[in-house]
Design a binder for these strands. Structure first.
Length: 287
DNA sequence: ATGTCACTGGTTCAGTGA
C-alpha cells in the first residue's frame, strides 16, 4: 500500500499538479493539507476526477484557510473530522481528519503554524498538539499521523539551524510536543529510512530556496511500530516541487508491505520488493 | 530590507497568512 501526504497550498490552484501526480504515483491513500475549500467546493472541484480514479474521499474544509482531506482506494471507514477536545483559535479550525483505511487509522493533519514564539497562536499550537496526543493515545494501535507538523524534529531537518533561531518550528517546546507524540510508540519513518541524509519537504517560494535546496523537513509520517515495520520505502517526491505552479511543499511517500488483517504476520518479501528497496539494507523482521 | 504565492475585499491593489 502506498501512503502519501501533501500540503498542496490550495487544492484549487493545485489541480493541474495534483491529478497528473495521482496518475503518475498512484498512491492508495493520500492525505492533503491546506485545501482551502469547503467540503461542498472540494466535492464539486474534484469529486468526479477522484471517483473515476477509484478514490473514495472525505474532506474537512472551511474555505479561505486550512482544510484537510483524505483520499483512499483501499477503504475509508469511520471518518472523523477533528479529534476529541481539539482546541480552537478561538473557534475550531479545519486541521484534522482521520479514517480507517485497510486496517490503518490514517490522520491527515495540519498543525497550527504558531507564527511567533510565545504568542497566542504559538500556545494554541502546543495545546492543539497535546490534545492530539491524548486523542491518539486513546485510539487504535495501528495508526499513521500524516501531514504538515509545522515542526522540524531536529536541527538536521533545517538547512541552517542558525537561520531559524528565535523562530517557530524549531523551538524546544514544539520539539517536546512532537516527541510526546513519538513517545506513544510512533516512528518517524522517513528519518528512520534516511538517518543521515539531507531530506526536506518544504522550501520557501522566495529567493530560489528550492533551487538551492534550502528547506525544512516539516511534513511527517509517524507510524506505530508494526506499521513502521511494514515500511518498504519512504521518500520525498521532489519532482512535485519542480516545474510550473508547484506547492511550496513536496509530497511524502511511504510504501508499506501488505498486511490485510492489520497484523504483520510472517513476512515474505513480495516479488516486486526489489524495486522499492532503494536505500534499505534489510527487510523488516517478523516476530 | 522576506526576494513568492494564495487568499479576501471590493475593485486592477493592500492587507493578511504562510
Amino acid at each position: 500500500m502506498r501512503l502519501a501526504t501533501w500540503n498542496v497550498n490550495s487544492v484549487k490552484q493545485r489541480v493541474p499538479r495534483l491529478l497528473p501526480w495521482l496518475d503518475e504515483r498512484r498512491p492508495d491513500v493520500v492525505c492533503l493539507q491546506e485545501t482551502k475549500l469547503t467540503d461542498d467546493a472540494f466535492a464539486d472541484l474534484l469529486g468526479e476526477a477522484l471517483t473515476e480514479r477509484g478514490y473514495a474521499f472525505a474532506s474537512n474544509g472551511q474555505g479561505q484557510w486550512n482544510g484537510v482531506a483524505l483520499l483512499s482506494k483501499v477503504g475509508l471507514d469511520d471518518v472523523q473530522r477533528g479529534f476529541a477536545d481539539m482546541p480552537g483559535f478561538p473557534d475550531a479550525e479545519a486541521r484534522a481528519i482521520s479514517a480507517t483505511c485497510a486496517g490503518l487509522r490514517v490522520h491527515s493533519l495540519y498543525v497550527p503554524n504558531g507564527r511567533v514564539p510565545d504568542s497566542d497562536h504559538y500556545r494554541y499550537k502546543l495545546a492543539w498538539l497535546e490534545a492530539l496526543r491524548a486523542s491518539v493515545a486513546g485510539g487504535p494501535e495501528r495508526v499513521a499521523l500524516c501531514g504538515d507538523a509545522n515542526i522540524a524534529p531536529t536541527d538536521a531537518d533545517v538547512f541552517d539551524p542558525v537561520a531559524y533561531q528565535g523562530h517557530t518550528h524549531v523551538t524546544v517546546p514544539e520539539r517536546a510536543a512532537l516527541k510526546s507524540l513519538t513517545d506513544l510508540g510512533l516512528h518517524d519513518v522517513v528519518r528512520e529510512r534516511w538517518p543521515d541524509e539531507r531530506v526536506f519537504s518544504y522550501w520557501d517560494y522566495r529567493a530560489g530556496m528550492f533551487h538551492q535546496n534550502l528547506g525544512m523537513r516539516i511534513d511527517l509520517v509517524l507510524a506505530d511500530a508494526v506499521t513502521a515495520g511494514r515500511v518498504r520505502a519512504a521518500w520525498v517526491d521532489r519532482q512535485a516541487r519542480k516545474g510550473t505552479g508547484p506547492s511550496d511543499h513536496a509530497p511524502v511517500m511511504v510504501d508499506l508491505d501488505e498486511a490485510p488483517d492489520g497484523d504483520i504476520g510472517p513476512m515474505v518479501p513480495p516479488p516486486s520488493a526489489g524495486g522499492y528497496r532503494r536505500g534499505s539494507k534489510k527487510l523488516p523482521q517478523s516476530k
